[in-house]
Design a protein around this nucleic acid. Structure first.
Ligand SMILES: Nc1ncnc2c1ncn2[C@@H]1O[C@H](COP(=O)(O)OP(=O)(O)OP(=O)(O)O)[C@@H](O)[C@H]1O
Length: 699
DNA sequence: TATTCAGTCTTTTTT
DNA sequence: AGACTGAATA
C-alpha cells in the first residue's frame, strides 16, 4: 500500500481513492476530513500522476491555505507548489484579475474591505442627503452585504442606496468582498469561453468546510465542476456557523442532487479527542433537531478530570484564573502554541490580552482587528497606491489631509467636480484651481502635487524599504503620529513592521525584473485577502486567543472556552438562531485534544453596565451525558489560593478537586494527601499531582 | 477648516 | 466604558 494511504482508515481511503467523479465526505468534527482531503491531493499527484496544475483546492481561510500547502508539501514535495490552493475569495480575485475587462471593469480594479465600503456609503449618504439616523452607513453596509449574500431581500430606500453604492464601486473600479464572488459568477454566466478556460485548467476541484459555502460560492463550484464532474467536498452540518454570511448547509444536500452518482462517505471515528471530551460534545449537539444524526467515537478513553468547569464571580477572576492556569501549564512544559482561549465575542479578548502581556505569556490573536485594517497601515497603503495611480480619487481622498494640509471636504469637492465635469485628472484640476483662483488652499494642493511627483521619482531609485521610510518622513506622516498621544505610539511600530512586508514583496517578486509598480501590485493582491496577517505572526508564536469562528478547523491540546453565559454564548438577540449558537459551541468544544476548561463569570462589565447572566445552557448540556456522581464540581475561581500553583500542601490547607469538590487536608505524605471532603463528608487519599487538585483560600 | 465638547450608540460571528 | 457623531466655536 502507498505510504499516503497507510495513515488513513478504510473509509478515508475510499474517499481518497475515488478520484474521478463527485464525492462528498459528510462527517463530524475531528474525523479527519481535512486530512482526507489533503491526502487525496497527494494521492492524485503521486499515485495517479495527475498534473498538480489541474487541481484546485478551496479552503475557508488563508491560514488553512498555508497549512494545507505545507501538509501536501510534506507528502509529495515541491510538486505541491503547483496545486492552486486558496480561499474562494482569493481564487475569484485571480480570475477577475485576468478577465474582469470582459464585464466592464478595468483590469487594475481594487478590492476594498469593509471599512472602505462604509466610507463609500458615508460619502453617498452625504451626497444624497440620506438620513443617518434611520440606519448608519455601517448598518447599511451590513444590510447590503447580507442582501448580496442572499441572506435577506431589500427594497425601497435600501435598494436605492444599494444601487448608488454599486454604481460608485463600478465608477471607481472597486470591488468589495461580495463582488468578488458575484462578479465571477456573472463572468462565468456571460462568457462561456472563460468558464471553459477554467474548467479545462482545473479538472479536479476539492472544497474544505463545504457546509459554510453560500449560494454564490456553490454556484461557482458547481459550474466549474460541471464539465469533468471531479468535485470532492467535505463538510459537517454540525459545524455550519456562517449563516450570517449567507452560508447554507443545504448546499450539502444540493450537491448530492445536482451531481450524478455522488459517492457519499461518512466518517465516525474521531482522532482528535478522547471519549471523555467527545461525550460532552455529542450530548450537546444532540439537542439540535435540524441535523444528521452521528455518533462520534474515539479509541482513547480519557479522564473525567479532562473537563474542568469553573465559575468566577467577576470577569477579572475569570481572566486571572485562565492566565494563571496557562502560566502553570507552560511552566510544566506545555508548548504555548498548543493552548487556546476561545470566545464567542471579540469584546472579551481585550481583557485576556492585557493579562497575557502582564503575565509575559507569549500570545497570538486570531480574528479581531486585522493588522491591515489599522488606520496607519491603510493610510500608508493608500499613499503607495496613489503614487502608482495619481489619478485615483479614492486614495486621494484618504491621504490628502493626512497629515492635515488644511484641505477639507469643500476643497476636495471642488477638485472632484472639475475632474468629472471637464474630464481632468486630479493634478490638472489642482493646476487649474491654482491658476484661476489661487489661495493658500491651492498652494497647499500644489505643494502636495509636487511632493507626490518627488516621491514617484524617488520610488524608482530606492529599495521599497528605504523608500517607505523616506515617504513617511517626507509626507510628514511620522511627525503627525509623533504629535498624537504617546499612547498611540505603537502605530509607529506597526509601520516599522510593514517594512518587513515590503521587504518580502521585493524578495519574492523583485528578481523577476518587474517594475516597482508591478511588484507592489502583486504584493498588495497577495496580502489583501489575508485576514490572518498580523504583526506578531512570524514570531515564535504563543498561546492562541481566538473567536470560535476563527478557530474552526484548528485543534489544540488545551482549550479554554470562556464567557459561557446566556446572552453572550449563546448570543440572545431577536434574530439569533439557537441551533446555530449551539453549533458554534460544538465547534469550540471539539477543538480540544487533551483537556477542556469551560468558564463563566457571574458578573461582567459590558458597555459600562454591570450584567449578571446565568451560566450558559451549553455548559449544562455538555455535562448532561455524565452520570450524576461523575459531573465535575464547579471550581469557584475566587476561592483559589494565589500561590496555588506551588502545589505545596500542608495539613489544614483547603483544597478543590474536580470530582469530589472542596475539602480540608488532614494528612500529607511524599506523594499523596488525605482530604476530608465537604460534600459527602468522606475521607479520600488523593495524589498530589492530580491535575485538578488546587489549593483554595480559608473559608 | 480645525477643534472641542456633549450626547449617542455600540457588538455577534468574517472573507 | 469608550468610540463616534454633530453642532458650536475659534
Ligand atoms: N486515520 C487517522 N489516523 C490518525 N490520526 C488521524 C486520522 N485521521 C485524522 N487524524 C487526526 O485527527 C485530527 C483531526 O483531523 P482533521 O483536522 O483532518 O479533522 P476534520 O474532520 O477536518 O476536523 P474538523 O471538522 O473539526 O475541522 C488531526 O490531528 C489528524 O491528524
Amino acid at each position: 500500500m502507498s505510504k499516503i494511504l497507510q495513515d488513513l482508515n478504510p473509509q478515508q481511503q475510499e474517499a481518497v481513492k475515488a478520484v474521478d467523479g463527485p464525492v462528498i465526505v459528510f462527517a463530524g468534527a475531528g474525523t479527519g476530513k481535512t486530512r482526507t482531503l489533503t491526502s487525496r491531493i497527494a494521492y492524485m499527484i503521486s499515485e495517479r500522476k495527475i498534473p498538480p496544475k489541474q487541481i484546485l483546492a478551496i479552503t475557508f481561510t488563508k491560514k488553512a491555505t498555508n497549512e494545507m500547502r505545507e501538509r501536501i508539501f510534506k507528502l509529495v514535495g515541491p510538486n505541491a507548489g503547483e496545486v492552486f490552493i486558496s480561499t474562494i475569495h482569493a481564487f475569484c480575485a485571480s480570475v477577475l484579475r485576468k478577465f474582469i475587462g470582459l464585464i466592464g471593469y478595468k483590469q487594475n480594479f481594487e478590492i476594498i474591505d469593509d471599512e472602505d465600503s462604509v466610507r463609500v456609503l458615508t460619502e453617498i449618504y452625504k451626497e444624497r442627503n440620506f438620513d443617518r439616523k434611520a440606519f448608519s452607513p455601517k448598518a447599511a453596509h451590513n444590510i447590503i452585504s447580507a442582501y448580496k449574500n442572499g441572506v435577506m431581500p431589500i427594497g425601497g430606500i435600501v435598494n436605492t442606496l444599494f444601487e448608488a453604492y454599486q454604481e460608485y464601486l463600478f465608477d471607481h473600479n472597486l470591488a468589495d468582498f461580495d463582488d468578488l464572488l458575484l462578479l465571477v459568477n456573472k463572468l462565468f454566466t456571460l462568457h462561456k469561453e472563460v468558464l471553459e478556460f477554467y474548467q479545462e485548467r482545473f479538472r479536479y476541484i476539492l472544497v474544505d468546510e463545504f457546509q459554510d459555502t453560500n449560494m454564490t460560492q456553490y454556484e461557482i463550484i458547481k459550474t466549474l465542476g460541471q464539465k469533468y464532474q471531479n468535485v470532492f467536498v467535505v463538510g459537517d452540518d454540525d459545524q455550519s456557523i456562517y449563516s450570517f454570511r449567507g452560508a447554507v448547509v443545504d448546499n450539502m444536500y444540493a450537491f448530492m442532487k445536482d451531481f450524478d452518482n455522488v459517492i457519499l462517505v461518512k466518517l465516525t471515528q474521531n482522532y482528535r479527542s478522547s471519549n471523555a471530551l467527545l461525550l460532552g460534545a455529542n450530548t450537546l449537539i444532540a439537542n439540535n433537531v435540524l441535523r444528521e444524526k452521528k455518533n462520534l467515537f474515539s479509541t482513547v478513553k480519557g479522564e473525567l478530570s479532562d473537563v474542568v468547569v469553573t465559575e468566577s464571580q467577576y470577569h477579572e477572576d475569570e481572566v486571572r484564573f485562565v492566565v494563571n492556569e496557562i502560566a502553570y501549564l507552560i511552566r510544566g512544559g506545555v508548548d504555548p502554541n498548543k493552548i487556546a482561549v476561545l470566545y464567542r465575542n471579540n469584546v472579551v479578548s481585550r481583557n485576556f490580552e492585557l493579562a497575557f502581556v502582564e503575565a509575559r505569556i507569549p500570545y497570538l490573536i486570531y480574528g479581531g482587528f486585522s493588522y491591515l485594517k489599522r488606520r496607519e497601515i491603510k493610510d500608508a497603503i493608500s499613499y503607495l497606491k496613489f503614487l502608482l495611480e495619481p489619478n485615483n480619487i479614492f486614495h486621494f481622498k484618504r491621504i490628502i489631509n493626512q497629515p492635515s494640509r488644511g484641505i477639507g471636504e469643500k476643497t476636495v469637492e471642488k477638485i472632484t467636480e472639475r475632474c468629472q465635469m471637464y474630464q481632468q485628472s486630479i493634478f490638472e484640476a489642482i493646476d487649474w484651481l491654482h491658476a484661476n483662483n489661487p489661495s493658500n488652499k491651492t498652494s497647499a494642493l500644489i505643494e502636495f502635487k509636487q511632493l507626490i511627483e518627488k516621491l514617484q521619482k524617488a520610488l524608482e531609485q530606492m529599495s521599497l524599504v528605504d523608500f517607505f521610510d523616506y515617504m513617511l518622513e517626507q509626507t510628514g506622516y511620522l511627525e503627525m503620529l509623533a504629535q498624537e498621544d504617546f499612547f498611540e505610539s505603537n502605530r509607529v511600530e506597526n509601520l516599522e513592521e510593514f517594512k518587513s512586508i515590503l521587504y518580502r514583496f521585493e524578495a519574492t517578486y523583485g528578481r523577476e525584473g518587474l517594475s516597482k509598480k508591478e511588484i507592489l501590485h502583486m504584493g498588495f493582491d497577495e496580502i489583501l485577502l489575508d485576514e490572518t496577517l498580523s504583526v506578531d505572526d512570524k514570531g515564535k508564536g504563543g498561546a492562541v486567543l481566538s473567536t470560535v469562528h476563527s478557530a474552526k478547523g484548528l485543534e489544540f491540546d488545551y482549550v479554554f472556552v470562556v464567557a459561557l453565559e446566556e446572552g453572550l454564548f449563546p448570543a440572545l438577540r431577536e434574530d439569533s438562531d439557537i441551533e446555530e449558537e449551539r453549533r458554534v459551541a460544538y465547534v469550540a468544544f471539539t477543538r480540544a485534544k487533551k483537556k477542556i476548561y469551560l468558564s463563566c463569570a457571574t458578573t461582567r462589565l459590558i458597555y459600562g453596565r454591570i450584567v449578571r447572566n446565568p451560566k450558559s445552557r451549553f455548559l449544562t448540556e455538555y455535562l448532561m451525558g455524565r452520570k450524576e456522581q461523575e459531573k465535575p464540581e464547579i471550581l469557584k475561581t475566587e476561592k483559589l489560593h494565589s500561590d496555588e500553583s506551588l502545589r505545596d500542601f500542608h495539613v489544614s490547607d483547603r483544597i478543590y478537586h474536580s470530582t469530589f469538590g472542596y475539602g480540608l487536608v488532614i494528612a500529607v505524605d511524599e506523594t499523596t494527601i488525605q482530604v476530608l471532603f465537604e460534600r459527602d463528608k468522606s475521607i479520600r487519599k488523593i495524589k498530589k499531582d492530580h491535575p485538578t487538585l488546587r489549593k483554595t483560600l480559608e473559608e
